[in-house]
Design a protein around this nucleic acid. Structure first.
Lengths: 342, 342
DNA sequence: CTGTTAGCGCATTCAA
DNA sequence: TTGAATGCGCTAACAG
């Protein structure tokens, strides 16, 4: 292999290579490529051409060293497999990706030690900020106030009110769900939902109950807490029909539960939505679109949560600090399982 | 704000701060912290304490500048929402995360332009390598041979045989599926699968047919290509039962299809698995565990694909280049929907 | 064992 | 308009 002198050198081109090829100093090359106005047009052109010939890519490490800002942020998630983290992550990636910032992804696997390890590693890489994505809406321990960069919590709020957290509004979600069922002419509404240990389950139930009360109605039975699974949806529905065969709507805590509910309703001869309307939660497409009829559900706008968190972080990096828990509205995805009573 | 001189300065501590506090030179501080042996134990101790008092984190940018390696890799995905990318990404993150390397996540949204943009940005940040994750197993355009860093393709292979690609072995997956059904005593096996435009669908069918032939059997009817949905599973099953009411097993191209198949089988009075065994594909937990009975499925070991890709990239960064398409075996997740004929 | 010097790649003074 | 010099934070070569 004869050492070539041209662009074929394996060594990635550096600014000094560009400068030499263009016959100018490093400083001038830098100015030319960065659009500084103190360069003759002809010179600038020569530099730009040289840079292209060498496929020159400015070394962001060097830039970061000088600027003190790296244009990178850390995205700390606790469960990649979880279906909540992903849309949030997409929203954040989306809000950043358009611009100049790159995202470090770290999955702590729900382990506090590993999380701390990742935080240290990210700080070592001089990220400009952190987004912490949780897998459930229960408050989580703050990373602390001592960090040298801003932090925004998404989905799972920090337990420190001095931190900024972006979460979906689950209480309101319960409310709008019930209001939709009422608008469909339903009045005997039951609620089958997930694990009572989840704040999300309790909040949605709370919102639903409040909306019923506001309408002068009561829930059919009590909220049935269980697990977030199809199996629980089936079990709970069997119990429900036994006690309240006249139910005309079931509000579910998840799409999985709703699928189980629909299955048993149909088996027992109840038509959906003619006899009983069913609503899911999460708007998980694989479940809503496979359902017969298509499943009405609540969408938590998680991508929006991610985008908002990213924008807030951006603001905080710029010095505009917010704090507290900001709850974003959910929206209905209305489909066949909740047609109006005719 | 009076300018403090101690550790309370907002400026992140630097090696020179540590050196000053410990009363040594910068070089000595560096050696002490990096475990170089040419430092007196007592001095080292003093430096370490100083570093801790200042919460010193070595600036990886500066290190990267010197070393020429940054300890970062780019993970280029085309569809974050896709259920295939995530496990692969987890596996890769896993294989890296244990060590010293951080992962840049980029979602090109299936857009070649955006992908190119991300590649440039990542190279600017001097990543040590790239993993390109596709959303289907059809070959995709190579990023080219001119890149200054190694690239490994995962799930979707590169169309350039000089590149290294890690993919699941779909042909073999079809084979072991049929062999499992045969082992369950089934002989009248049908195949309902997804879009014929997907290589994955064609390869799985190919493997299944080969295994049947090897056993001296034929498929019941022809492979029924359609879409990857529950709806297609229902439709196809209705047609299948019409033509071949004696079928005793249905091999499905996805878990969604399988769910639709089971639903219609039961509606028509066929018991699963007593009369008809059903197998899914993907081992997507939300679908397999909600199914009644629990759904046997093929797991593509995607995390393993991700891990292998990461390890291969690691090797390539170290100079050990492989190439070609490496197919990793799939495995069966056997559950109630495929019990043996009694 | 410790400190001085040089330089990674770049942007930014300041002179020329 | 251009270029030489300085330094971002750190490591690695040397000299003491």
């Amino acid at each position: 292999m004869t050492p070539a002198t041209g662009p074929s050198r394996s060594h990635t081109a550096t600014l000094s290579d560009v400068a030499r090829l263009a016959g100018v100093s490093i400083a001038t090359a830098s100015k030319a490529l960065n659009g500084r106005s103190q360069v003759r047009a002809e010179t600038r052109q020569r530099v730009i051409e040289a840079a292209e010939r060498l496929s020159f890519r400015p070394n962001q490490l060097a830039r970061g060293l000088i600027a003190g800002r790296t244009g990178t942020v850390g995205l700390l998630t606790s469960d990649l497999e979880g279906r909540f983290s992903i849309p949030i992550l997409m929203g954040a990636e989306d809000a950043f990706g358009a611009g100049e910032v790159a995202v470090f992804l770290c999955d702590a696997r729900g382990d506090a030690i590993r999380e701390q390890h990742h935080v240290r590693a990210l700080l070592g890489r001089r990220v400009d900020g952190l987004i912490v994505v949780g897998s459930r809406t229960d408050p989580r321990p703050s990373l602390g106030r001592e960090l040298p960069v801003p932090v925004v919590y998404a989905y799972a709020p920090s337990d420190d009110p001095a931190d900024l957290s972006i979460v979906p509004d689950n209480v309101d979600a319960g409310r709008i769900s019930v209001e939709h069922l009422l608008a469909c002419g339903r009045t005997r509404i039951a609620h089958i939902t997930g694990d009572h240990g989840y704040l999300a389950a309790r909040e949605r139930a709370e919102g639903a109950l409040a909306a019923l009360e506001a309408a002068g109605l009561h829930l059919v039975g009590v909220p049935r807490f269980g697990s977030w699974s199809e199996g629980w949806g089936r079990t709970a529905t069997a119990m429900l029909l036994e006690q309240h065969p006249d139910v005309d709507a079931v509000l579910c805590g998840s799409d999985q539960i709703a699928r189980g509910v629909i299955e048993v309703l149909r088996e027992r001869g109840h038509r959906v939505p003619d006899d009983v309307a069913v609503m899911g939660f999460d708007n998980w497409q694989v479940l809503t679109s496979g359902s017969r009829p298509l499943l009405t559900s609540v969408d938590m706008n998680l991508e929006q949560v991610g985008r908002t968190a990213a924008q807030a972080l951006f603001g905080a990096i710029g010095g505009a600090a917010r704090s507290g828990v900001e709850a974003l509205p959910c929206r209905l995805a209305i489909r066949g399982s909740t047609a109006p009573l005719s």
